[in-house]
Amino acid sequence: MKRSITIAAAWLFLSACSTTPSVYAPAEDGRYGYSEQRLEDNRYRVSYSGNSATSREEVEDYLLYRASELTLQNGYDHFVITSRDTEPRTSYYGNGSPYAGWPPGYGFYGYGGSGFGWGLSTSTSRPVTRYRAYADIVLHRGEKPEGNDWAYDARDVMNQLGPRIVHQVEK
Rank of each mutant, 00 (worst) to 15 (best):
P103E: 04
T82V: 07
T124R: 10
P26L: 00
D153S: 07
T122E: 14
R155W: 10
A16S: 13
H78P: 05
A53M: 01
S68L: 03
S83W: 07
T90H: 09
Y34M: 00
T19E: 09
W150I: 14
S68G: 08
G112Y: 05
I137R: 02
T129G: 04
S52R: 11
I137M: 00
Y24D: 00
R66F: 05
A100E: 15
A10N: 10
S52F: 07
S15F: 09
E28M: 15
S15N: 14
S4V: 12
S123G: 14
G117A: 01
E69M: 07
D77W: 06
L139H: 13
A100T: 15
L14G: 15
L63C: 01
T90Y: 10
Q168S: 15
E60K: 03
G147S: 12
P104L: 06
Y24Q: 00
R84A: 09
K171W: 03
Y34C: 00
Y134T: 07
A9N: 15
D77H: 07
Y65H: 02
N42Y: 09
P104G: 06
A16D: 10
P145W: 12
V80M: 02
G50E: 01
V166E: 13
Y109G: 04
R126K: 13
R3S: 11
A25R: 05
Q160C: 07
A8D: 03
S68C: 04
I137Y: 02
A25V: 04
D149H: 14
F116D: 08
P21Q: 05
C17Q: 14
Y62M: 02
D29T: 10
S55H: 02
V138L: 06
A9S: 15
Y92N: 06
A8C: 06
Y24P: 01
Q160N: 12
L70K: 00
G101T: 03
D153E: 07
G142C: 14
A135K: 06
E146D: 13
W118D: 11
R43H: 12
Q160P: 11
L161N: 10
E40A: 05
P26V: 01
M1D: 09
G112V: 04
R130E: 06
P21T: 02
E170R: 00
E58Y: 03
R31S: 11
G105C: 03
Y62N: 01
E58M: 03
A9I: 12
D77R: 08
L39I: 15
Q37P: 09
Y34F: 00
T54I: 00
F13V: 15
G110S: 12
E60S: 04
R126Q: 13
V166W: 07
Y106M: 14
C17E: 10
T129A: 02
Y134G: 05
